[in-house]
Amino acid sequence: MSPVVVARPPRRTAPPAWARIVAPIVVGLLLLAVWILWVDVLGTAPRALPSPIAIGQELVLRGEIIGKAMAVTATNALLGLVAGALLAVVLAALAAASRPLDGMLAPLVAALAVIPIVALTPIFNTMFGASSQFGRQAVAGIAAFVPVFVNVLRGLRQTRPVHRDVLRSVAASPWQTFRVLTLPTAVPYLLTGLRIAASLAVIAALVAEYFGGPADGVGTAIASYAKSGRAALAWAFVAGGIAIGLVFFLATTLLERLVARRLPV
């Protein structure tokens, strides 16, 4: 016999790799040039928009305090993301296993999805004390919970009939079926949920800082420096916030890609 290994088909026709990297860099540099032209050369920009050069100087000079603030916000976002995602996976598994529970949870999650969660921060701060980070972490957690729950619940329902038949034919127990079929089928959906949740958790953790609580974190710094007229420093903290969001996004995207390679759906 001469078994033939079938080559994977090309995914889709995309621009060459170098173009995909170079294009956004070129766009970014162009925007930067326009910005410098407007602020430094023409001098017609509003005071709240400092030159990128001034922002860069602040980033270097105040790197340490910016780093500390970033650590606070990133930790809140990460704790919220992990706790919210764990709770979402457990509840989604329960909802997938039990129709009545699904009926109870579905409207609750739908309600959560439309409530502006950060608006709850002042209430949390009052509940848990103004010096506690818990309110911010809780807000990040709730924000992360929704997309993970929705995606995992959908993923847990994607098992194919032929796979269910195979497992039934080998007399797999319900738990074995969950472990070898239902759960692995849902993993790509979990990772998509996590990628969406990661960005939401960062945004929630940062915006929650605008609503009071301890006097630390990127959001707190942006608010106070913007108010006191130190626009360049405020913008340097904004850059810090963007960096946190990017790291969360890239980490979860990478995870999704890695697992997608091992789990072709």
Binding site: R160, V162, D165, V166, A171, L181
Partner: peptide, 18 residues
């Protein structure tokens, strides 16, 4: 079925891709 007295194959191979 519980005793695995039979084995079964379908038109779709039904292999677990992971």
């Amino acid at each position: 079925r519980l005793d695995q007295d039979y084995g079964i194959a379908f038109q779709q191979a039904g292999l677990l891709p992971w």
